[in-house]
Design a protein around this nucleic acid. Structure first.
Lengths: 339, 339
DNA sequence: TTGAAAGCGTTACCAT
DNA sequence: ATGGTAACGCTTTCAA
């Protein structure tokens, strides 16, 4: 492997000049730059990351802490990961994986060994064990998810509360008097992750504001309980019923179940799908969807962390960023009845 | 951050002794080891990864090249990733992510910058662009997937051919004279990934050996074409029909479709599910399943790479490892009829 | 505009 | 069994 010393020799300049050509940290005459660049090209020189990290005290690597057992709602965890890795590269950084299997020791390890300059934590819980550790970590950390005690931390997530409100607004605008949310499966929430509560909070708040009767039942993969939820929703409805759900299996079955009961989606009943992969789902089932934009969340997390690393080094900055969901209306929302 | 120099001072020994205590590369008296370990503990010393890499010419990092757009069959790409990262830790190594968006330059970059000691490539295609690049890479590389030209390469994958054979063996043992494979969706194969052909190759080979009439249709998510495939299978069957499929939506629908036609799974018809997450699926639908063991594949990929790194450094070694699928019989396989 | 040289924190060789 | 010290390959200060 050629070193910058080899490049310097080949170009007939000093090693420091090679370094400055690469970093652009000081003006270089056109002539010597050409020489150096030619030598770099010719030798296919690539700087040694370890040496660079040692000398500059920066690794240009970001640690990404992933859950070992992805909870359901994350949809495609791998999509988050891939977007994060790709965005990192756009900022000239690489991603080091840390599984949360390692626990908080893992965080201390990768930071302590100076394997990375900052961290992104996924699947952040309401009262996350890792928060006290992170607070004294000396490197910037971005949370994906909003813990209950977030002061002093940098957090990014989809705006679940807004999604809940938007959902009800859609129903209200379509003239519904009542609606049923067939929510996440109980395992998904488990009081650890708080996005379920955030969504429901937004939904109930907006229901009150819109004077719409809202009820909520937990989601499920089994058909009998979905049917029960539907029948409940129909019985409770004063006028055409409306359903919203973040669970794909529920959304897959809803149209058929409703048709079985003589209700035509888009005419006699509204359905909204909420989630992370809603585009194709919504197109296929002709549903109005509220997408939680996981790619945007991922991208912003990286951008935020890179910003922290850019200006001033070290510490955390308080930051709370909620990505607005994207509503896509399709024809399964019933037309507003004339009063 | 404390350095090994600080530890040495605190323990009253030389820096090299600290190093040897940590690496165990030479005998240390019990007494000084205690002193050093106490100092390490007390200062919460952690070795600087960059310095270590620079001096030892090893990063203890493995590069993992992931597809940016996961093809369907991978099931849970994130499961692969998490298992790989966790296994790497068990071997005292970390994982650096590389997206294949970077293309072959990405491989040359992470190796050239000496960010990692070896690579694992996922989603390897039959005639993969990356192979010629990998061949001259000077670090060990493990492929997950079997390219057509594999000489000199280290490849690991599920044994799709065996899965195909096992599938037919099950049907033959249950007394079927014919069977239908409702295969992968055309997008999955696309002649790039060759696991589809490997599976079908094994299945047809075994069908011939068992004197069983086998037909194959492509999978699909849409219900009409699945029904068509089922009807075709029923019509062609000389005796009770049998179906196998690797597509979850197909498997979800098969029992209902068959019941609609008066065929009771496990009594009048056999179904086998093939795939990567078959445990819960099989239990829920009472299917016999053939699991392709993605976790084992992932784990072995890491172990293999770590072995290459252990003894002798550098180059590739030829290696081909096919992970046998796990067959789990459940009561949807019809009992062998008495002849 | 450029060069020389002092680190950065380890490892590993050569001594003792 | 332990210590001294020369690398490792880069960045950056200090000089010119």
């Amino acid at each position: 492997m050629p070193t910058s010393k080899d490049v310097a020799a080949a170009a007939g300049v000093s090693q420091s000049t090679v370094s400055y050509v690469m970093s652009g940290k000081r003006p270089i005459s056109e002539k010597t730059r050409k020489k150096v660049e030619a030598a770099i090209e010719q030798l296919t020189y690539q700087p040694n990351a370890g040496a660079r990290a040692l000398a500059s005290r920066r690794t240009n690597v970001l640690g990404l802490v992933i859950p070992l057992t992805p909870d359901a709602h994350v949809g495609s965890l791998s999509e988050f990961i891939a977007v994060i890795a790709a965005t990192a590269r756009q900022h000239d950084r690489d991603i080091l994986l840390v599984t949360d299997e390692e626990g908080t020791e893992g965080l201390q390890r990768v930071v302590g060994q100076q394997l990375c300059d900052g961290l992104i934590l996924m699947q952040v819980e309401a009262d996350d064990d890792r928060i006290p550790v992170v607070r004294k970590l000396r490197v910037p950390v971005v949370f994906i998810g909003i813990p209950n005690e977030a002061e002093g931390l940098s957090c990014i997530d989809a705006d679940f509360a807004l999604a809940g409100r938007q959902c009800i607004e859609e129903f209200a605008a379509a003239g519904h008097q009542g609606a049923t949310v067939i929510g996440w499966r109980p395992e998904s929430g488990d009081r650890k992750l708080n996005f379920v509560d955030r969504f429901l909070g937004g939904a109930f708040e907006q229901a009150e504001a819109s004077g719409l009767a809202l009820s909520h039942v937990s989601g499920s993969a089994d058909i009998a309980s979905i049917e029960a939820a539907v029948d409940g929703g129909i019985a409770a409805a004063d006028g055409p019923p409306a359903f919203a759900s973040p669970e794909e299996p529920v959304l897959e079955m809803l149209p058929r179940i409703l048709l079985d009961r003589g209700l035509k989606p888009g005419v006699d009943v509204s359905i909204i799908g909420v989630g992370t992969q809603t585009k194709s789902l919504g197109e296929r089932l002709r549903l109005t969807t509220i997408d939680l934009e996981p790619r945007t969340v991922s991208r912003r997390a990286v951008e935020l962390l890179c910003n922290f690393l850019k200006d001033g080094d070290g510490g955390q900055r308080q930051h709370l960023e909620l990505i607005p969901p994207v509503v896509t209306q399709r024809d399964s929302t019933i037309p507003s009845p004339t009063h």
